[in-house]
Amino acid sequence: MAPKHGLKPPKESHLKRAKTSATPASRSVTPAEAAKVSFKVLYPDINMMDMYAETTSKKVLELCKHAEWQDSPFEAPYTETEKQMEMETETETDTDRTLDQWYTVVPSAEWESMKKYNNFIIQGETYKNNHFVYVRSTETPQHDRDKDIEENIKDFWVARILQVRALNAQHVYALVAWMYWADELPPPKTRSPDQISPRGGKRTYHGSHELIASNYMDVLDVLSFAGKADVVHWKEEDDSLQSRIYWRQRFCRQTQELSKVRTHCICEGHFNPEVSMYICDSPSCKIWLHKACLVDVILTRTYEKIINGDNPTKQTNGVTKANGKGKGKAKPKPYQGKLSGRIEDDSPPMIVIKDLRPGHVREWRERIECPKCETELQ
């Protein structure tokens, strides 16, 4: 996928359009025969209008004059009081709502002259504000059936409709907020231990059909839409998703950072819905645990028990915190080459431990305890 609005994708991507898109400056793809006006979204510093009017250029002041406020559909809206505070200060009043912003569509005269509509219809399909849509890129094949889209969803961009305006029935435009596939994320300013590649921002907890919400905006001709997308907001309240495509995290245009997601497990890592986790049944604990972390803790304790006799330690040695700032390669585990383990998903789950040391080769099964509260998993 092409770089859009400063959001640069990984240099090496499995997405073909990352290398070959002919429109690196914009995500807007509008059929040439329908495009009469090319709109662009800019993000003026609204504080300049009142605070620096004497030294600010006429061009910037003009942008501020036509600026509109956008409450992000991915966050709780500002109150009028908070909005006023935002205008009077240079800092945000609530760091949890980083996607709300001022924007200006240019050319402003053409944009403001068009009438706003609540919905529009393409080939019998009704689209409304806040609907998610598939958007054709310059290399997206023309698909006539919905099943083709579902089978090739990453050939399409995904956006959320914020506003609809039209000059006439042939010239209908939608202001949208972009969603990004996790593969498209740029690398963070500071290397994260859970990055899949140093060249990109995708994390180990991102699922293959996970989208990232953003406050990057564009104005698109609605003829670039390929259909409605079934996208759900996953709040990690359970481990089942009702849709193939979901979002839970946000990427901020201003900070170029991802929002935080819930932490789980003793490693303080995150939940990839495509990787099984175990939950402690103790009402006072209820921690979700990664399978690899459970195996690591059990093998570490078993190794220490073998070395130290019948005085096993209860420390979670060897478990690396996913959000840590450690540099370099992880230290080898003390049990590597000496013990191995695998979890059998029975009821209750059991771990099969194998002693690999010469002269000690044997295998046995054990119940699994929660490494936090020592309750046996059910």
Rank of each mutant, 00 (worst) to 15 (best):
F120E: 09
K36E: 15
W102C: 13
N152S: 12
D281T: 07
P188Y: 03
L42T: 08
S347W: 02
M87E: 11
M51V: 13
K189M: 08
K260L: 06
M1Y: 03
R342I: 07
Y205Q: 13
A25N: 14
T204E: 14
L356F: 02
C293L: 06
I368E: 05
S214E: 05
R253Q: 11
F271S: 10
I343A: 09
K16Q: 08
K338Y: 03
A109S: 13
E90Q: 11
T316Q: 15
Q378Y: 03
Y117S: 14
P198M: 03
R342P: 03
P358M: 05
A182C: 13
C267I: 04
D218R: 03
V176K: 03
A109E: 15
K354G: 05
R253K: 13
R301K: 10
S57C: 12
S340N: 10
Q336I: 12
R253E: 09
W69I: 04
S340T: 14
W247K: 04
P73H: 02
H14C: 10
D238I: 01
V219F: 01
T23Y: 08
S282R: 08
L63H: 13
W102M: 12
K65Q: 09
R367I: 05
R367T: 09
R136Q: 10
M217V: 01
V275D: 15
A25S: 14
A182P: 11
K11R: 13
R253Y: 01
L211P: 09
L7S: 06
L377P: 06
D221Y: 03
Q101H: 14
T320H: 07
P371K: 01
E54Q: 15
G6T: 02
Y246R: 04
V361C: 11
D230R: 08
G200N: 08
T375N: 12
K115E: 15
S57T: 15
R17N: 10
V297F: 01
L356Y: 00
I161R: 02
Q336P: 00
T302P: 02
D238M: 04
N311S: 14
D296C: 13
R362H: 13
